[in-house]
């Protein structure tokens, strides 16, 4: 993954652009997309409880890495949508999935020595797709680019609000 801040900044940009086109509370809408952009990295739970420990506990093969796949984010976004009141449920599901998908798309451009990304579109695509290798996870420039774009979006939105007031 690029760092979480980059994912969250991209979530902010997408969320702000979505919020202009849907009714409801714009800031709350943006926040849901930003939260969605974090969902695939719930896979980091494996740092605390490794998959191997889960396999010993459950007695079956187990992979936390599922959380970093399209199938995994459908599950986590679905759980997230169930936590909100029914009137907001479908919208929140869509916004969480938008954020989570942006995360997976950004991660598909990561440089991998093998030349192939992990199969993050599982279970729909089980092979690792070729990656263009645009950046590594600790490069600072994707954060800078996302930060500048997010600042532009923020300033344009603020300007738009003040013109309407």
């Amino acid at each position: 993954m690029p760092d979480l801040l980059t994912h969250v900044l991209v979530g902010y940009i997408l969320g702000t652009l979505f919020a202009r086109r849907v009714s409801g509370k714009p800031a709350a809408t943006t926040t849901v997309v930003m939260l969605g952009a974090l969902l695939p990295d719930l896979t980091k739970i494996q740092i605390v409880v490794p998959s191997s420990r889960m396999e010993v506990l459950l007695g079956v093969p187990f992979a936390w890495h599922t959380l970093h796949t399209l199938g995994g984010v459908l599950l986590t976004a679905g759980i997230g949508a169930l936590l909100v009141n029914p009137t907001n449920r479908r919208r929140v599901l869509g916004l969480l999935l938008a954020g989570a998908t942006s995360h997976l798309v950004l991660d598909s451009f990561l440089l991998k020595p093998s030349g192939y990304a992990s199969p993050m579109w599982w279970p729909f695509i089980t092979t690792g797709l070729p990656t263009p290798g645009l950046y590594v996870s600790y490069d600072w420039w994707p954060t800078l680019v996302a930060g500048v774009l997010a600042l532009i979006v923020f300033l344009r939105t603020s300007q738009r609000i003040s013109e309407h007031q």
């Binding site: 889960m54 079956v60 093969p61 992979a63 936390w64 890495h65 599922t66 199938g71 995994g72 279970p123």
Partner: peptide, 9 residues
Amino acid sequence: MFVWAGSIT
């Protein structure tokens, strides 16, 4: 789902 993914080698 985690078990299903875990079975993919």
